[in-house]
C-alpha cells in the first residue's frame, strides 16, 4: 500500500472533516445543534436508500428502481394509515412487505434471466412508478393518522425520529456487512463472481438477498417520506436512486464491485447533506448546488481511482 491508496481510503473522511471545519468558522449557524439535527433529518431518507444500494453495488450490481419503490411503498403504506382504521403496525408491514417483494422481484429477474441489473432495474423503475399511480389512482393519499405521521415528523427527547431510525439502520447494515457470512459472500461475489461460485457460494441466493434488502430499505425510506409530508405521493422519490448511488460512490464503494463500507456510505450521504445545507446557509442557489455536487461525485471517483493504482 502506498501513500496514495491510504489517501484514497481516508480521503473521504478527511474531506468531510475539512469541509465541516471550514463551515464551522465561515457560517456561525452551521455548528448549532438545531442545524445539525436539521441536516440529520434531511439526510436520513437518502442514507437509508444509500445503505441498500451499497449492498447491491458491492455485489457488482446496481439498482435504479429505488425512487419508484419509495413511491409505491409510500402509497401502499398510506392507504392503510388513515385514522381509526388499522393499527400502526399494518401500514408499516404493508410498506415493508411491498418493498421487499419488489426487491425480491428485481433479484429474481436478474438471477434467472441473466439480463444486466442496470436494464432490469431500469424496467422495474418504470413499472414501480406505474404501480404507484395505479394504487393511488393518480391522486395523493392524504388524511393519515397521527401515529403514522410521528415516524417522519416526531422526535424523542428533541432528536428527530428519522435520525433514530437512521442510526439503527446504520448499525444493522454494518453488522450484516461485516459480521455475517452473507456480508462476506457479498464482497466475494462482487470481487470475483466466477471464483465465488467455484468456492461453493450460491451466487444467486446472495443476489436475491441484496436486492430484497435494498427493497426493504427503500420501503423504510418511503414510509419515512410519506409520514414526513403526511401524504402518500405517487410521484415522490423521483431521482432518489441517483442521490443514493452518489452517496455510496462518494463513500468509496467501487462501481465495479467487491469494495465498500457502510461508514463510507454514511459519510457520503452526510457530505451531500452538509454541502447542500451550507450552500443554503450561504445563500447559494440550488442551481449552483447541483454543479458543486456533480464535481464532488467525479472528484470522489478520481480519488478512488488514484487509490487503486498499485
Amino acid at each position: 500500500m502506498n501513500r496514495f491508496s491510504k489517501l484514497g481510503q481516508y480521503g473521504i473522511f478527511l474531506a468531510f472533516a475539512l469541509i465541516c471545519l471550514v463551515l464551522a468558522f465561515s457560517t456561525p449557524k452551521f455548528f448549532t445543534i438545531s442545524n445539525l439535527l436539521i441536516i440529520g433529518n434531511q439526510v436520513s431518507i437518502n442514507a437509508l436508500l444509500a445503505f441498500g444500494v451499497t449492498f447491491v453495488i458491492i455485489t457488482g450490481g446496481i439498482d435504479l428502481s429505488l425512487g419508484s419503490m419509495v413511491a409505491v411503498t409510500g402509497v401502499a403504506a398510506a392507504s392503510f394509515a388513515h385514522p381509526d382504521t388499522y393499527p400502526l403496525i399494518v401500514p408499516l408491514l404493508v410498506g415493508l412487505g411491498v418493498g421487499s417483494a419488489m426487491g425480491a422481484f428485481n433479484g429474481l429477474v436478474i438471477t434467472q434471466s441473466k439480463v444486466p441489473p442496470f436494464i432490469v432495474t431500469l424496467g422495474t423503475m418504470t413499472i414501480g412508478r406505474g404501480l404507484a399511480l395505479i394504487l393511488s389512482k393518480g391522486r395523493p393519499v392524504s388524511n393519515l393518522s397521527d401515529e403514522f405521521n410521528f415516524i417522519g415528523g416526531g422526535n424523542i427527547a428533541g432528536v428527530p425520529f428519522p435520525i433514530i431510525i437512521l442510526l439503527i439502520a446504520f448499525a444493522v447494515c454494518s453488522v450484516v456487512l461485516n459480521k455475517t457470512i452473507l456480508g462476506r459472500y457479498m464482497y466475494a461475489v462482487g470481487g470475483n463472481e466466477p471464483a465465488a461460485r467455484a468456492s461453493g457460494i450460491r451466487v444467486s441466493r446472495v443476489k436475491m438477498w441484496v436486492y430484497t434488502i435494498c427493497g426493504l430499505l427503500s420501503a423504510l425510506g418511503g414510509i419515512l417520506l410519506t409520514s414526513r409530508i403526511t401524504t402518500g405521493q405517487p410521484n415522490a422519490g423521483a431521482g432518489f436512486e441517483l442521490d443514493a448511488i452518489a452517496a455510496a460512490i462518494i463513500g468509496g464503494t467501487s462501481t465495479s464491485g467487491g469494495t465498500g463500507t457502510m461508514t463510507g456510505t454514511l459519510i457520503g450521504a452526510l457530505l451531500i447533506g452538509v454541502i447542500s445545507n451550507s450552500l443554503d446557509l450561504l445563500n447559494v442557489t440550488s442551481y449552483y448546488q447541483q454543479v458543486v455536487m456533480g464535481v464532488i461525485i467525479i472528484g470522489a471517483v478520481v480519488l478512488d481511482g488514484v487509490g487503486k493504482k498499485d
Partner: peptide, 27 residues
C-alpha cells in the same frame, strides 16, 4: 476462478468452509 483478488488471505482461505465458522448467525 481461484481467488478474490481484493480480499485477504484469511477471507479467501475460509471462503468454501464458512459453515465451520458460524456462531449464532455471525462469523
Amino acid at each position: 476462478l481461484g481467488f478474490i483478488p481484493r480480499m485477504s488471505v484469511k477471507d479467501n482461505i475460509t471462503l468454501s468452509s464458512m459453515n465451520n465458522h458460524r456462531k449464532g448467525g455471525f462469523i
